[in-house]
Amino acid sequence: MMPRHVDGNALAGPLSDLFAFDVTCASGRCVGCGDVTVLARAMVYEDEMGFVARCHLCDSMLLTVVRTADGAWLDLQGISGLHVAL
């Protein structure tokens, strides 16, 4: 069974350590399907290691955040661009 997910909104806290702006309001382009939407709409799965955010349309992995002893490892391989309102 797929674990239950929450929305990208839940990343606002964990990603506030890494970004100086609210990245959940930024629009990302999914490498898998090309959809561009705010990160807050992603499907977010959490476990002890960290977070995985998946595209709300095609389920491709957008980003992962893994906590390490001295910081966090952010992998953005599923996002080909981010639009940030300034």
Partner: peptide, 9 residues
């Protein structure tokens, strides 16, 4: 606590 968080919802 950490917040307030989230500018979308």
């Amino acid at each position: 606590l950490r917040g307030p968080l989230g500018g979308w919802f």
